[in-house]
Design a protein around this nucleic acid. Structure first.
Length: 239
DNA sequence: GTCTTTGTTGGCAC
DNA sequence: AGTGCCAACAAAGA
């Protein structure tokens, strides 16, 4: 927190959505003051007007250590105390951005309201206006941000709704339950460090394999595709 | 060697 | 305009 960034190395320019020069010029000599999150973006404000914004893509994490960069490190931010923050991103699908205005950034990137922050009345209003399939809506980052393939499956499993349910077929009770489960599933996942092995027994996430037993009814978990992406569900519990 | 994947984007079709 | 589907990107594990 109190440490100034002494050195910045962009080991792979592919992850630099903002030019490496701009990233360095904007951050060098300044401090990262806190960490926030909107949807799948990590926001790191500094003691100046600049923000460092990270997206991890499918796989990625941060490492804070005094060591050499871990394997797959794509960017390093070294502080005065000798420790470094390593942006590790094996599949190179993550991105680093610099912005001076988070609000404008979210508009430009079309980041919808965060799933954990949205109020129930806003959620209900938006869902009633949207068309198409339920799972697609939950995963639409412009519409609602933060939920991906795995967690949309879990939310739908806990709500007892089929992923391909048409939004037009949902009533007020369905939407209310969906809102509750969306918050619950995400909260529980965070409490368990998003580790499938630590998830509660009633979660379907550790059962993402065809033929696995449904935690509720013991029936077989099925796999299907939507927009080319596999999803898992229980045909007996999710109508 | 082949297939799949925790995400996003751009192109195309309807 | 809104929605669905696919390919592309990249690397690892089954």
């Amino acid at each position: 927190m109190d440490q100034k960034i002494k050195e910045i190395a962009i080991e792979d320019t592919k992850v630099a959505a903002t030019s490496p020069e701009t990233i360095k010029d904007s951050l060098k000599g300044h401090k990262l003051t806190k960490a926030e999150r909107i949807g799948k973006y990590l926001l790191l404000p500094t003691n100046t007007e600049h923000f460092l914004v990270m997206h991890f893509g499918m796989t990625g994490w941060l490492d804070y250590a005094k060591d050499e960069p871990p394997e797959y490190t794509k960017a390093s931010f070294t502080f005065d105390n000798g420790y470094s923050l390593f942006f590790v991103n094996p599949r190179k699908l993550g991105r680093l951005h610099i912005t001076d205005n988070i609000h404008a950034f979210c508009e430009q990137m079309e980041i919808g309201p965060d799933a954990l922050a949205i109020r129930e009345d806003d959620f209900l209003r938006k869902m009633k206006r949207k068309k198409g399939m339920l799972k697609s809506a939950l995963m639409d980052q412009k519409f609602l941000s933060g939920i991906g393939n795995i967690y949309s499956d879990e939310i739908l499993f806990q709500t007892g709704l089929h992923p391909k349910t048409k939004l037009s077929d949902l009533n007020e009770a369905h939407l209310g339950k969906l809102y509750i489960q969306m918050k619950e599933v995400l909260q529980v996942a965070i409490e368990h460090q998003a580790d499938p092995k630590k998830m509660p027994g009633h979660f379907i996430i550790p059962r993402r394999k065809e033929g696995e037993p449904c935690p509720y009814c013991g029936g077989e978990v099925k796999k299907e595709k939507l927009s080319g992406r596999g999803f898992f569900y229980c045909p007996a519990c999710q109508q």
